[in-house]
């Protein structure tokens, strides 16, 4: 299983929010990204599950402080 990366998250966010100019950094969080609202968060979570082949709860991901922590969390689930 290929470890989940911030680039994977960026691809998902661009696809779900339909904004190909979104650029994510580990220090950023959903609050920094226009279009990443609670409904899209659910859809992004579903895509993360499909791509990383793990089960995650949208609420758990929402509690993480930034995207760096989110990627680490998903990778830990993959392990």
């Amino acid at each position: 299983m290929k470890p989940f990366t911030i680039e994977d998250l960026q691809v998902i966010a661009r696809e779900i929010i339909n904004d190909r100019e979104i650029i994510l950094a580990p220090s950023m969080s959903a609050a920094d990204v226009p279009g990443w609202d609670s409904l899209n968060h659910t859809l992004i979570t579903v895509e993360i599950e499909a791509r990383a082949e793990v089960e995650v709860d949208p609420a758990q991901l929402a509690e993480l402080p930034n995207f760096g922590a989110l990627v680490k969390f998903v990778c830990a689930r993959q392990a």
Partner: peptide, 11 residues
Amino acid sequence: SESFLVKPRDV
């Protein structure tokens, strides 16, 4: 988002 409880779709 913090003041109006909605996310701007684009800035």
